[in-house]
């Protein structure tokens, strides 16, 4: 729940001196803008735009000569190997600020936004340096990750003539993790598992129906005594109170009775926007809740004729879905 009351006031006071100050570490490009680093970047990212590596094509373009990809901006000032092996810079006010948060429980850190503006494209031979200022620290916020504070930094990039060539704002959330992160799901080989749809909970009254789907059957429960069909399955017939039942295969023909298109929240394992419909089945009085597939969700409409298909929606998991009748 984050710090509250007097503790929170006292903590927020300790943050104030950091707002507006330079972070204090040296950010000077160690090399001129050069073809080798540009080529390395373009190859790694598979960027084939000729203005970065082909002098002739670059000369013919509006740029007139070889330029560096604009999003490389920060690459010219990062310290490289030192980031893996070097000692932390004792002058780094940003790290100092993060430690203040760590000490009171806001141990999580995640970059949430970045924005870069480019005044001009950098050319071979240019040399950049940068100055970063801690611009703002937000109020305490409730976020999906937990309670925390957003820290905005702004970096201004200048060239060899001290002219501003671009800028970057960077937004980081320092937060109190709201719960222990769940162990990451993995498959048998230890590789990260792909998210899947939420599986039904199975128990006596519904397991037989889902087993039918996995065997490619779209079943409807039928009262063995009075013959009434019912869905979703229930253990007793509401018409004659019989507990004896069997099932029949549905014809799979139907018409959309109502539908929604889900945009939010996006749950891993599903594709969005996601169309879900209540379908009037051909069997009188029966409806079925299902995804409408094989068409643009925006094209689903009430009265649309649809037919069922048992489809593998995830590995090892089949569902009854409906698709438009051509």
């Amino acid at each position: 729940m984050g710090l509250q009351g007097k503790e929170r006031e006292a903590f927020e006071k300790t943050l104030e001196p950091y707002v507006g100050i330079e972070i204090g570490i040296k950010e000077i490009g160690r090399d001129e803008i050069n073809q080798a680093m540009i080529r390395h970047w373009c190859e790694a990212l598979d960027n084939e735009l000729p203005i970065y590596t082909d002098a002739e094509a670059a000369a013919d373009s509006m740029h007139g000569e070889i330029v560096a990809p604009p999003t490389m901006l920060q690459a010219w000032i990062l310290p490289g190997m030192e980031m893996a092996t070097g000692e932390p810079d004792p002058n780094d006010k940003q790290k100092e600020l993060h430690r203040l948060f760590d000490d009171v429980g806001y141990t999580g850190v995640v970059a949430t936004n970045t924005e870069q503006e480019y005044n001009r494209y950098l050319k071979l031979g240019d040399r950049v340096k940068a100055v970063t200022v801690i611009e703002t620290i937000s109020e305490q916020k409730a976020t999906g990750l937990g309670i925390g504070y957003f820290i905005n930094t702004k970096t201004t990039f200048t060239d060899q003539n001290d002219e501003v060539v671009g800028s970057m704002t960077f937004r980081v959330l320092k937060f109190e993790p709201s719960q222990q992160p769940a162990a990451a799901p993995t498959d048998d080989s230890g590789a990260p598992a792909k998210p899947t749809r939420i599986r039904p909970a199975l128990a006596h009254d519904n397991q037989w129906w889902w087993e039918g789907v996995q065997a490619d059957k779209f079943l409807i429960q039928r009262c063995e005594d009075c013959g009434v069909l019912r869905h979703p399955p229930r253990p007793m017939c509401g018409e004659c109170q019989s507990i004896r039942w069997d099932s029949v295969e549905a014809t799979g023909q139907g018409e959309v009775y109502s539908y929604v298109v889900i945009h939010y929240p996006e749950v891993p394992g599903y594709e969005y926007p996601l169309a879900v419909a209540v379908v009037d089945l051909e069997e009188p009085g029966l409806r079925f809740v299902t995804n409408v597939v094989d068409c643009d969700p925006e094209d689903v409409h009430i009265g649309m004729k649809v037919e069922a298909e048992v489809r593998e929606m995830d590995p090892d998991f089949k569902m009854v879905v409906f698709k438009p009748i051509a």
Binding site: H63, P69, P70, T114, E115
Partner: peptide
């Protein structure tokens, strides 16, 4: 950032100038 730039300039071509990436 670089992949976002590439996605857009692959469409826009050599004479486009990227001004801002947010």
């Amino acid at each position: 950032n670089g992949l976002c730039e590439r996605f857009v300039t692959d469409w826009a071509g050599s004479d486009a100038q990227v001004r801002k990436v947010a």
